[in-house]
């Protein structure tokens, strides 16, 4: 099983995400944003957190228009798996692979702390290691994590059971407490919290490790 982790100028969680994949048994190849092709035979693309292109213009906007993101779009359209964390979630919305957008936090402050997440569904490769309704604790670290979409889109996400995680105590003003959403084929997950920062006893929290472990097992079956 192989993962590609995209690296933009300003990515700073790329190695953490790669480590999360590796600990779960995936081979990881780092891919520079100027590359024009994804490595052959990859099972999933990871889009890491950070501040791609300095968050200039809008978070994720310039990254979303980089050469490699055309390939990520094609990969997702073909039914490929992709996982975006934090800035990676912002990139996924800017590429329109996932609906909605991430606005400045309602309280205007950058927030870096561990928050409670309610697992809202457990039917995707990303969430099947959890029980629906379970509460886990995962760190957040963002200034622009306030998820928004029009009411029709939010209704559709809920009707199709595509909200993967909700904040138990909404830290950033996100519509309907949304912390992470799935694509319509459930193969792309974008989330603001950082499960790759909760994967090892040394990190003081292993609630994120199940996501990577079950993802790897699911990819092996796929």
């Amino acid at each position: 099983m192989k993962a590609a982790v995209i690296v933009f100028p300003g990515s700073n969680c790329d190695r953490d995400l790669a480590e999360g994949f590796r600990k779960a048994g995936l081979d990881v190849q780092m891919v520079w944003h100027k590359d024009t092709a994804l490595p052959s035979g990859i099972d999933i693309v990871g889009i890491p957190g950070g501040f791609s292109f300095g968050d200039y213009l809008r978070c994720g906007a310039i990254a979303a228009n980089s050469p490699i993101c055309n390939e990520v779009k094609t990969h997702a359209e073909r039914g490929g798996y992709a996982f975006g964390v934090c800035n990676g979630f912002q990139v996924l919305t800017e590429t329109k692979i996932l609906p909605g957008a991430l606005l400045r936090n309602a309280g205007l402050k950058y927030i870096c702390r561990t928050v409670g997440l309610n697992v809202a569904e457990s039917q995707s490769v990303f969430t099947r290691g959890y029980e629906a309704g379970e509460t886990i604790r995962i760190p957040i670290a963002h200034h622009d994590g306030n998820y928004t979409a029009d009411a029709a889109t939010l209704d559709q996400l809920e009707a199709e059971d595509r909200v993967a995680f909700r904040y138990t105590d909404n830290p950033n003003g996100s519509d309907r407490d949304i912390a992470g959403i799935l694509s319509s084929n459930r193969r792309v997950l974008g989330m603001m919290p950082h499960p790759e920062r909760a994967c090892d006893p040394a990190q003081g929290n292993e609630d994120g490790a199940r996501l990577f472990a079950h993802l790897t097992a699911a990819l092996a079956e796929a």
């Binding site: 213009l57 809008r58 228009n65 919305t93 609906p99 957008a101 606005l103």
Partner: peptide, 9 residues
């Protein structure tokens, strides 16, 4: 449409 504005918001 492609870059300068995000027409979702």
């Amino acid at each position: 449409e492609k870059l300068l504005a995000n027409t979702v918001i």
